[in-house]
Write a protein that binds this DNA or RNA. Sequence first.
DNA 1: GCCTTAGGATAGGGCTACTATCCAAACGTG
DNA 2: CACGTTTGGATAGTAGCCCTATCCTAAGGC
Lengths: 205, 205
Amino acid sequence: MQLNELSQRSGVTPASIKYYLREGLLPPGEAVHATRAEYSARHLERLELIQALRQVVGLNIGQIRGLVKMADDGVPRLDLLAAVQRVVLNLENSTPASGGEATEAADAVVRLRGWPDFPSDARNALTAHLELMASLRIPVSASVMETYSKAMDDVAGLDIAATTAPESTDRLILTAAVGMHMHSQLLLKLLALAQASHAIRRYHG
Amino acid sequence: MQLNELSQRSGVTPASIKYYLREGLLPPGEAVHATRAEYSARHLERLELIQALRQVVGLNIGQIRGLVKMADDGVPRLDLLAAVQRVVLNLENSTPASGGEATEAADAVVRLRGWPDFPSDARNALTAHLELMASLRIPVSASVMETYSKAMDDVAGLDIAATTAPESTDRLILTAAVGMHMHSQLLLKLLALAQASHAIRRYHG
DNA sequence: GCCTTAGGATAGGGCTACTATCCAAACGTG
DNA sequence: CACGTTTGGATAGTAGCCCTATCCTAAGGC
């Protein structure tokens, strides 16, 4: 398969494919000679992954590059899933100052729920977020944390990311990222509806 | 107070203030004459609102313009809060095809939770989102909807947006938008931690 | 042998959110 | 009252992101 066919089969313009090649999202085709390269089903799959991550999940090129690089480097699946979680659920750019009330609040919720007491990106992000809320003077009571964490524990118990291991690493990333994104958005939409419902009940009878 | 003082007190550069004036986010100061205008505490408050909506909530200029225009037009508070919800929780760009299985699923959850049976942005967004998930072949079982909606009902019961009515409309928007954003992000961080915890338990003993 | 096409390099374009420059009209300071 | 400074308004430029268009050379098919 050559560039034009790859373009037609994937629905991505040749110009964009070239761009992805340049940016290192798409591995180069097997060069037949100086001006001909052969692309495979792997390239098609990769393009589908890129499309889904851009258009459905809304990741930027750098984030996609990070994920596909891990896939190409043969990183273990659990690490890959953690990386997907990082970019899909906005765990990036979260570095807690460590050691304040926020750390204690995070510890408390881990104890309360009986979650394993491991350091993780998610835990750091939670601590950092609680610090941010404190700095904005948005109080987060223990009962709020209890209710929220109970709710999220129940939700996580249903296993958001597809657990049936897909065939290829690219498909694993695609399934996990799209699933995580769509489920978290679903949760937010339900939250909006629940809020609106409570508000209507309060103000209109 | 003139432009320079407004700039120093708000921490926004004069160039940016001029930009916000041009874009209609900030009302013009009272013109003393051709080359002098006087700004008030209202402008300072508006600038704080703009800053928070940009930097904390991450809204774009158009979304901010929409909100402050409503504030300036004296729109009722409930409508204002609905508009805040729209932009903060991504309910925009959601137009369901109406009448499919997604509509029924949304109806079912409203009945199940005993929420008032009103059409709303939130409900449309939920229906549209369920349609999108169906088109991506991501199944959403009734039990998932039950668990999710129960969780969000509990969370909404705690009243995410500050209900104590703030002094000014600008502060109402600020409090509601920042609160809603931070709480929804908190939920997502807890979800990430819950997911990670479940994964660890499953794979590491 | 010649026209088309692939692939690579490079430049350009549209969008967003500013940022910098320019200018004329006051102000205020000596 | 003259003169440097500052203000507000207009306009143009910039940076980052994600492409998109053009150009060119080398090869392939007929």
